[in-house]
Design a protein around this nucleic acid. Structure first.
Lengths: 233, 233
DNA sequence: CCAAAAGTGTTCACGGTACACCCATGC
DNA sequence: GCATGGGTGTACCGTGAACACTTTTGG
């Protein structure tokens, strides 16, 4: 059969990028990165970073390329989410989009506006504007997936600095899961997993007792998983 | 931007169809449906049912159409799995494939060979032949997903007849999870969920004490979920 | 009467949850 | 010295896991 016997849909990738606003104040919240569209359709509207897949690159490569081009992001956690293919999802014609979600450390990555002067901005997930195409649906699904997966995979560390306090870790989970956790139980459970390494280093410049810093030990995690360990928050 | 400025990859769907061989004997096992390819590439090899997405149908529609065309299957449980897009996965050129997995009741569905004389056959998941393209990878991922999801979603009922015994239900889980379950604990847990309706009907034609038949009550399940209930085996 | 599977309760160990006070630091 | 978050232990309860015998039916 000839591959070109029928017309092919266009193929795109779109990325839902999550980040924790870790400003110096104690207020943090889960944000999503949006791009202001410069071109029709939906010119001037907010949308997910993304674009068409090149004929010689894999889907993952396309997603990473778009994140680099449109937001200056490199080396982030990235995972495929779902493929959206309703025939009328793009007014220009048939476009199927493979959606990804990404987690970034805002401490490491400064988001650059895209090269072509459209702006890139963070919005709290709960206060995002109307989005172009079916991107609202995509963000909703990505957030659901994040909420589910953060509980049984150590994804959350991708959102924090390499060195973090237990309170930062706890607040991260509280923001994603949208419910409070008990401080003593949380610490007991997390430290009991033997995944975190206590550093000889304390938090700096806070107006109260400084907290100890920890880091996530990925090697130790992988070893534990091989022995049947299951991460769970 | 012109949608056709660049060449588009071809877009296909492939389906991993699982079924439980429920022959009259007590031996059941998890099977996957394969198609013998009639055309190059990989002519004569076994492969997943699937084909190219038409320009005006959704991805789900394409998957259901292919299941009907290639295996005579209708009205099955179907869920998107993952999209495979490595540039070299098809020797004919760039083909991106949206993979699905399906669960069928072998009691309800007789698999018909496809119209064009290629055969369709069930193979035990653990004894499947070499497969065309990257289909081995797709089956592996589908099986992993099934093993994970069957534990926290009531998917398993899609593999059993509408009326089933608790032992059939237990054996289904044992085959999918590949580990034995304790009979008393299993019954206590399942019945305690209040999801099954005991029927006034017994198993027929067995050479030992006849077991009671049950059915899964989906409405009751949906109501419980809304109250925060979590299915778990 | 024998083979084969159905059906049925209790005990124990562990992990989840609830809960309140003192400590260290910067201002 | 006071405001702010850091850090710590115990008691209770519910759920998961281990475990064996009697019942029913067909052949």
């Amino acid at each position: 059969m000839d591959l070109d016997a029928y017309p092919h849909p266009a193929l795109a990738v779109d990325c839902v990028v999550f980040g924790l606003e870790t400003d110096k104040s104690h207020e943090t919240c889960l944000n999503v990165l949006l791009i202001e569209r410069g071109l029709e359709p939906f010119a001037g509207a907010w949308a997910l970073p993304g674009g068409f897949v090149h004929i010689d690159e894999s889907l993952d490569e396309a997603a990473r390329r778009e994140l680099a081009e449109e937001a200056g992001l490199h080396d982030v956690f990235l995972e495929q989410l779902y493929t959206f293919g309703a025939p009328e999802r793009d007014p220009r014609g048939r476009v199927v989009s493979v959606a990804y979600y990404a987690l970034v450390r805002l401490s490491d990555h400064h988001v650059r506006a895209a090269t072509d002067a459209r702006q890139a901005r963070w919005f709290p997930v709960s206060q995002r504007p109307d989005l172009a195409f079916d991107h609202r649906q995509i963000v909703d699904l990505a957030y659901q997936r994040l909420q589910a997966k953060v509980r049984y995979q150590p994804l959350g560390f991708e959102l924090l600095p390499q060195k973090f306090t237990l309170s930062q870790l706890q607040r991260m989970y509280e923001h994603i899961l949208e419910r409070p956790l008990d401080k003593r139980n949380f610490r007991k459970k997390i430290l009991g997993m033997d995944l975190l390494v206590a550093l000889d280093e304390m938090q700096q410049g806070v107006a109260h007792r400084a907290a100890r810093l920890y880091r996530f030990d990925e090697q130790r995690y992988n070893r534990l998983v091989q022995r049947g360990f299951n991460f769970e928050v």
